[in-house]
Simulated scan of single mutants.
Amino acid sequence: MLDTDFPRPPGDVGHPGSWDFPVKFRRVSGASPDRVIRRGGAGLLDDFIAAGESLIAEGCCAIITSCGFMALHQQRLAAALGVPVAASSLVQLPLIESTLGAGRRAGVITYDGANLTPEMLSACGAEPSTPVAGVPSNGAFHALIESGASYDRAGLEAEVISVACDLVARNPSIGAIVLECTNMPPFAAAIAQACAMPVFDVLTLGRLLYSSTCPRHFTGME
């Protein structure tokens, strides 16, 4: 988890009620949004690895992060930890695009369009040319996460829906949307309805990892 204090309602990666299985959280001291998003997590990789190791020691079967901009470190985190690791919801992009028809692709909604680089997409195995749109730097998401504004659910939802609809309008080949920001899943259903297409996020990623590392047991014939 990044080192933040803004509200995390159900649907946010940091709310235990967002998950239908047990989760554990570990905050990485000094991992501010600015340091991770705009400075690439400089000097923090060892701290993230240490946090992952402590979670694994407590029995965790897979690791995710609370910021999609950790995508840049996907390979190093996965190599350092002995369980499946997904540093960003963006790691789902190659799988999602393989499920879409020919000529269709996934688009990304992000917290910061200026800093989500082709290099980050490539680090997750995605096409560097993937269509990306960020929420406005003077909007509700940035006010909440970096300026201490109160949680404006209606404003946040309207903002991300507007960005998603505009991205799809500008890129008619988009057949699915991936939310980079782990604070956006509370609005995934509204985005799916507005854009009439599937929406993937950190919660779909977490459920995939958990269901594969802790598969269900089936018995009997009925």
Rank of each mutant, 00 (worst) to 15 (best):
A79D: 15
N115K: 03
S98N: 07
Q92K: 01
S129Y: 01
R105C: 14
A176M: 09
V168L: 10
G107Y: 11
S162A: 15
A176H: 10
G82I: 00
P198E: 13
G155E: 11
N115R: 11
A158C: 01
L93T: 08
V163N: 11
F200M: 09
Q92H: 05
C181R: 11
A149F: 03
V168S: 06
G125Y: 05
L208G: 08
V85G: 02
A158D: 09
F200T: 04
R105T: 03
G103V: 00
E146C: 08
R104H: 10
G148E: 03
C181G: 09
N115T: 05
L205Q: 10
R153M: 01
M184A: 05
L209Q: 03
P84Y: 06
E157W: 01
A158R: 15
P94C: 03
G82H: 14
A149G: 15
V163F: 09
M197R: 11
H142W: 12
I161A: 04
A189Q: 13
G148S: 09
A126N: 05
Q193V: 04
L208W: 06
H142S: 07
L144R: 12
L167I: 08
A192C: 04
V160N: 05
P185Q: 12
A80P: 15
L179V: 10
Y111C: 12
P128I: 02
A190E: 14
G148N: 08
S88Y: 06
L179I: 05
